[in-house]
Design a protein around this nucleic acid. Structure first.
Length: 787
DNA sequence: TGAGAACTC
């Protein structure tokens, strides 16, 4: 117990999904003093293993496990069979270990394996290590089909394992590289790994802006998006012998596309791989496996790169394994009657638990995690709980509330993972869905579930999306409850009745059915999928959604009249932005607009993930930042404001972090924006769209109103459909669809009346809102659509 | 007067 607590108290390790994640460089800038010196053991990693794979009660109760494993424990050198001996015992204690021969056996005979492994089974770290020495996992020189003829090529040798999130990919790679005995050196540390700078290694990773694939890499962790990019370059994934798709149950758009492409490779002819089969392992945390099995078992009518064949290929035979997880029991309680007021019910439950339950037991702390829908609800609940807590008798333990949502700064998020200071205090974490999949809060033994989550849904007919709180699925409710049983027996209180639970959908709607599939369709077209509607998808979107996307791509010039991809479309897929932004970049390079650097600056800010501007809710925060923000904001609207911000930021030569703080700008997002700017500039230079720009810092010169107009006209090439005209009654009516929209309060144009506006986002929340708004002239809209 | 969570050559 003390050992485990220590590892967690370092704050470096939390769980992400069912895996351990190092928060180093993610939540804290604090140097790691607990990194092992060369040749010594690494206490953080060792503690992490026991924390992840074996809850303390299980390890201490199984006496046989405490005996040393004789195989390699005495050997100090790592062998490829066992990896680093100091991790070997822990690896052997994982539930997956006894199944490793079964897994190998299946994959020697079949190409597809579906592996359901519950939380804590260790599948993300272990499965690739079981497979990389298999006979089918060798690189071979073969003749592959290339165009009309054949050519010699190396096929196979590597295993890719995909993750939905970047932190998961990088931290798993670090973890597994240590287990394998060839640690990746710590980032920018100049030799923090066991051998200093490692020149060769079995394990690598690849995520945007961060690639570490040492020579000899056999196991490569990457994001789903990264593997999709690789697919565009090499449709047959020739360098791989196997692809492991992890966290499939999250059903991101990217994973759905990947499964489609993988199905085509597996069930198509193997000429493009010189006859070498590709093994596919699908890993999921939920047992909803029948859909995946059916998906791979059904035949496809054509293989990648070839025309649809009249002779359907036979389906692939799929095997299935279920691995037991390690989870403590969780008592689930529903409310007997529907709850009229979530906030009141939450308050009551928090204090009931707080006053009746001990602060900790033999399993550790007993903290509370409540799932709410959004920032507003969380902040209201926080205020309520804090007010009530201040009235508690002084002999009772204290209560400290931590909000947790994506828009919080890294520092604020970090606090929710730390044990509270002062032993006589209980932690209450009020979180959005971020705590359901992306991060795990240690110490939680009591979960309160409001039964809802905000969900984004795209409405193809209206060309807009909505973001509204909706009932969660059963699978999501089970996932939330499970968060109470990670470290000891727990309790989950649901703020809805059992009858309501029974009416919930089994699973969440996959993202591909909820979002704009514009990018997905262009990706398919670029990969040579002529008939997008027949591309194999587990959950095909409505025909209407696909048609809308095709039409939109045609308007953007990415598709010709017959639906084939154009040269413009081929250029658009080269950029890591959605098609409308890619179209703007191409237009900006034309002599007519000639504003590529400016367009890149703006698009970098917008696509940097979350908004670079922190939301200023309180009046005092607004006043504080107002003076500074004045120099950024432009009367032409948000786009020119982004441009000015990026230009001033890039010109800033002294303390960029302080510069951001003064202006209430998200430091991390701004850094990301600068990275994207560099990447886009590089791509534009490579594509011959511009000369290499001079390096920063460049002196700031304000954009003239004339130049601003050119930039906005250029953006209309991508967003002509997202415009609205001021009506006589002072509302804005969209030129496409004739809906009334209001300018979102986050816009610098909020509350202003302009002849016409262009907006890059269109979201229904409380109202129909236009976001990222610019003032334009009505006549520009027709001009942009004409050519 | 208001923003669930990710991701890209």
């Amino acid at each position: 117990m003390p050992k485990k607590r220590k590892a967690e108290a370092s704050g470096d390790i939390v769980q992400v999904g069912n895996k351990l994640i190092s928060l180093e460089g993610y939540l804290s800038k604090k140097p790691r003093k607990d990194i092992a010196a060369p040749g010594q053991s690494d206490p953080v990693a060792a503690g992490a293993v026991s924390a992840a794979s074996s809850p303390p009660a299980l390890t201490s109760s199984s006496g046989s496990r405490s005996t040393q494993i004789p195989v390699t424990a005495s050997s100090s050198a790592s062998s490829p069979l066992t990896g680093d001996p100091q991790f070997f015992a822990a690896r052997q204690s994982l539930p997956l270990w006894t199944r490793r021969d079964e897994i190998r056996g299946i994959l020697r005979q079949k190409d597809v394996l579906v592996l359901v492994g519950e939380t804590g089974s260790g599948k993300s770290t272990q499965v690739p290590q079981y497979l990389f020495q298999e006979p089918w996992c060798r690189s071979r020189k073969v003749k592959v089909k290339a165009g009309a003829g054949t050519e010699e090529a190396r096929v196979g040798g590597m295993i890719a394992i995909t993750q939905p999130r970047r932190v998961a990919a990088t931290t798993l790679a670090h973890r597994v590289s240590r287990e394998a005995g060839t640690p990746l050196s710590e980032h920018n540390s100049g030799g923090g790994g066991a051998n200093g700078a490692v020149s060769k290694g079995l394990v690598g990773y690849s995520v945007r802006f961060d690639h570490r694939v040492p020579p000899g890499t056999k196991i490569k962790y990457l994001t789903e998006g990264m593997l999709l990019q690789e697919l565009l370059r090499d449709p047959h994934l020739k360098q791989y012998s196997a692809i492991i798709v992890d966290e499939v149950h999250e059903r991101s758009v990217d994973v759905d596309l990947l499964l489609g492409f993988l199905k085509q490779i597996v069930s198509g002819d193997k000429a493009g791989r010189g006859g070498v089969p590709l093994k596919v392992v699908i890993m999921s945390a939920t047992a909803d496996v029948e859909g995946i099995r059916r998906f791979f078992s059904e035949s496809v009518s054509h293989s990648p790169g070839s025309q649809p064949s009249l002779m359907p290929k036979s389906g692939t035979s799929v095997d299935f394994l279920q691995i037991e997880g390690r989870q403590f029991p969780v008592d689930i309680v529903h409310t007997p009657k529907p709850v009229p007021d979530i906030q009141q019910a939450l308050l009551k439950l928090v204090f009931k638990f707080h006053t009746e339950e001990a602060l900790s037991d033999k399993h550790g702390r007993k903290d509370i995690l409540a799932f709410l829908t959004g920032q507003e609800e969380i902040e209201a609940a926080q205020k309520l709980i804090e007010e009530y807590a201040s009235t508690l008798a002084s002999n009772l333990p204290k209560l400290k509330v931590f909000p947790l949502f994506g828009q919080l700064s890294m520092e604020a998020q970090h606090e929710a993972f730390q044990p509270v200071k002062g032993g006589f205090t209980r932690k209450v974490v009020l979180a959005t869905n971020i705590a359901e999949t992306s991060v795990t809060v240690p110490g939680v033994r009591y979960v309160i579930d409001c039964g809802k989550a905000k969900v984004k849904q795209f409405r193809p007919r209206l060309g807009m999306e909505s973001l509204l709180a909706k009932p969660i699925s059963k699978s999501s409710a089970i996932q939330r409850a499970g968060r109470a049983g990670r470290e000891g027996p727990g309790k989950c209180f649901r703020l809805y009745t059992e009858e309501t639970y029974e009416t919930l959908q089994e699973t969440d709607l996959p993202e591909i059915l909820r979002t704009d599939i514009l990018s997905a369709v262009l990706t398919m077209k670029a990969r040579g999928i002529d008939d997008v509607l027949s591309f194999p998808l587990m959950d095909p979107p409505e025909v209407e959604s696909v048609e809308k996307a095709l039409l939109h791509l045609h308007i953007l010039g990415a598709l010709s009249d017959d639906g084939s991809i154009t040269e413009t479309g081929r250029k658009m897929v080269l950029f890591p932005v959605t098609p409308p932004y890619a179209r703007v970049l191409l237009a900006a390079a034309e002599a007519k607009y000639d504003c590529l650097l400016e367009a890149i600056d703006i698009i970098s800010c917008i696509t940097a993930g979350e908004d670079i501007f922190l939301q200023l809710r309180s009046e005092e925060a607004k006043e504080e930042a107002e003076e500074y923000r004045k120099e950024l904001s432009r009367r032409e609207g948000d786009l020119l404001t982004y441009l000015t911000t990026m230009q001033l930021y890039a010109a800033e030569n002294t303390d960029r972090a302080q510069w951001c703080k003064d202006r209430k700008i998200h430091v991390r997002n701004m850094k990301q924006a600068l990275n994207i700017r560099k990447q886009l500039r590089g791509l534009c230079v490579r594509e011959g769209m511009m000369e290499p720009p001079p390096p920063d810092p460049q002196p700031f010169t304000p954009t003239s109103p004339e130049q601003a107009a050119v930039i906005l006209k250029c953006f209309l090439k991508g967003f002509a459909l997202k415009t609205a005209i001021l009506a006589p009654d002072s509302s804005y009516v969209t030129s496409h669809g004739k809906h009334v929209v209001a300018i979102h309060p986050s816009s610098v144009l909020h509350g202003q009346k302009k002849e016409a506006i262009m907006f890059l986002e269109h979201v229904y929340t409380q109202k129909n809102y236009a976001k990222k708004v610019s003032a334009i002239q009505a006549s520009w809209i027709a001009d942009a659509l004409e050519e």
